[in-house]
Simulated scan of single mutants.
Amino acid sequence: MLGLAVSVAAIFSAPAAWAADFPDRTITLVVPFSAGGSTDLVARLVANKMSEKLGQQIVVENVGGAGGSIGASQVARAEPDGYTILMGTVATHALNPLILKTKPYDAEKDFAPISLLVLVPNVLVVNPQFPAKDVKELIEMLKKDPDKYAYASSGNGTPLHLSGELFKSMAGVSMQHIPYKGAGPALNDVIGNQVPIMFDNLPSSSGHIKSGTLRALGVTTKERVPSFPDVPAIAETIPGYETYSWNALFAPAGTPADVIAVLQKAAAESLKDPDVIARMGQFSASIVASSPEELASHVKAELAKWEPIVKASGVQLD
């Protein structure tokens, strides 16, 4: 009986003891979009600093496709041990659950929240050869030649796609939507002038805006952003227009609370690093570094916010 009691005690104490050794090997951070986009940039910046804090390498793995749902599904099915985590976004945890007819995962039940890292502005950009110099001129061009022009996004049902659909609706214009498997490939085609217009996350476009390979017509937040004070908010031309993106860390549901706590602490400490703060500031990403509980509440609120927008857009994907 004594031996049985000791065995039972060992079983119940094992997770805590195991978590005390976490991590003891490489962690994989799945980015559910292709390399080069905003989520990828934020992931690599945070992963580098978290690796230093944890004493183990965090390897970023890009698993693009289906608006982020393929990568998110991979993490949802992973072993809940903290060694496979997800850089989630508004697409993976608010839009996909509302847009996809077949639900590959439950945004709330299939994940353990770790931390809401940053809020990220979006931006409307065009190829420098495109005639429109501001949002007003773009609207005039689109009204003059309906459906002549196309805009790119990081994929069907992504926040960048819906940013474009909301723009079309509120401005009363038409544009063809060209979806890509991530922001990186879409940016390449806009820079190459295969597609003239794009809604993008500001972080992935910021370098191109500064170098002149893209022209920014407007940011999607209510007001102008500190890193590009000369770029108007779209809301200055279309009152009430607003969208933004966010990045957050998630683990598979069932990951031990002690492991979640270790990851959350490392993420929060990384976001206090002066180099990280400066880099985030360059593209006006607002640092949050939330608790797991706060991220859970955020996901619930985002689902409620986007539901009427998705319904109004009529977007439904298989």
Rank of each mutant, 00 (worst) to 15 (best):
E223V: 11
K103H: 13
I11Y: 15
L138C: 03
D106G: 13
V90P: 05
V90M: 05
L202S: 05
S245Y: 10
P146G: 09
D21Y: 12
S34Y: 00
L45D: 08
N127P: 10
A19Q: 07
N247L: 04
A150H: 04
V126M: 00
V231Q: 00
A66P: 01
G207N: 13
T255P: 01
L138W: 06
H161T: 00
G71M: 07
M1R: 12
G164M: 01
Y83K: 06
V8T: 13
M198N: 08
S7M: 13
P179E: 08
A278L: 12
Q316W: 04
V262D: 00
L95D: 06
S227V: 04
D24L: 00
G254M: 03
Q56F: 01
P229K: 14
K305E: 07
Q56V: 09
T255W: 01
E137L: 00
L295S: 02
A14F: 15
V310N: 05
S69I: 04
V276K: 05
A261F: 03
P80L: 08
A267R: 00
T158K: 07
F22I: 03
S163D: 01
D230I: 01
V63K: 09
V8L: 15
G207M: 12
G281T: 09
G55I: 02
G182D: 11
A235D: 11
E236N: 09
P196I: 05
V219P: 00
P159I: 14
G218V: 05
L303F: 08
G212L: 11
V90A: 13
V195G: 07
V299G: 06
S115Y: 06
S174N: 14
D230S: 15
A186I: 05
A66V: 08
V42E: 10
I238A: 00
D106F: 10
D275F: 11
T28W: 02
D40T: 05
L295Y: 04
S69V: 09
A278C: 07
I27V: 15
H298R: 15
Q176N: 14
D189P: 00
V120Q: 12
H298G: 04
N96I: 10
T84M: 08
V173E: 11
F22V: 00
W246S: 14
K144S: 13
S204D: 14
N156P: 07
P113W: 01
